[in-house]
């Protein structure tokens, strides 16, 4: 959009807040809602998605002058699917427990609109170095929100964070928080808080 190039630092930071994939552009909500019932799952999903995003950004950006415009989406999907397969097999091989609990959501990264969206909107139009920075920022922003969501839901739904029990015997876990309604409620509150902070900044 902006003709003038923003600074390298800004390219990374924009993914953390201003263009955060979950809080601002609401992309990739399917894994965000589905697998964040524990902090570990959120972390794993965030890292897997970041890896795929970063690798495919790098690849697609370097091939941007060779991919014919008419078949670009299909080409992106093939490249993304390749890296998803790598991530999926890696998780299954080294972290079978996490791979089990993430279930079909790792293969589903292929159709994550965050990844496809960044390729279409950014990598296919920008230099490799810029795409790399964009990928880092977006992946980091996505992972941080997923970890935060997982932490809140795990704390209220099971009384622990990263599997470490924090709330004692007196605490009766709120089962709803690790069920789908809990995901929607928590994400809703996250987005509300983000909007509230933005509003306050705008008026200040």
């Amino acid at each position: 959009m902006a003709k003038k190039q923003i600074s390298i630092w800004q390219e990374i930071v924009k993914g953390l807040w201003r263009e955060n994939p979950v809080l601002a552009t609401l992309l990739g909500l399917c894994p965000t809602l589905a697998v964040t019932n524990t902090a570990v799952n959120g972390l794993a999903m965030g890292l897997a998605t970041s890896f795929v995003l970063l690798s495919s950004s790098l690849f697609i950006s370097s091939l941007r002058n060779f991919i014919p415009h008419q078949v670009r989406i299909a080409s992106y999907i093939v490249i993304i699917a390749t890296f998803v397969t790598v991530a999926d097999r890696f998780l299954a091989g080294f972290f079978p427990a996490i791979s089990q609990s993430l279930g079909p959501y790792v293969p589903l990264i292929v159709v994550n609109c965050l990844i496809l969206g960044r390729q279409e909107a950014f990598s296919s139009k920008n230099k490799i170095s810029r795409s790399l920075l964009d990928g880092i920022g977006m992946g980091l922003g996505f992972s941080l929100v997923l970890i935060a969501l997982g932490m809140v839901r795990e704390l209220l739904g099971s009384g622990s964070i990263f599997g470490i029990t924090l709330l004692g015997e007196w605490f009766e876990p709120w089962m709803v928080m690790i069920l789908p309604p809990g995901a929607f409620l928590t994400l809703g509150f996250f987005i509300a808080i983000a909007n509230w902070i933005n509003d306050r900044r705008a008026t200040a």
Partner: peptide, 10 residues
């Protein structure tokens, strides 16, 4: 409904 989903036993 929230309580029913949170504390199915209670």
């Amino acid at each position: 409904a929230f309580l029913q989903a949170s504390f199915p036993i209670g």
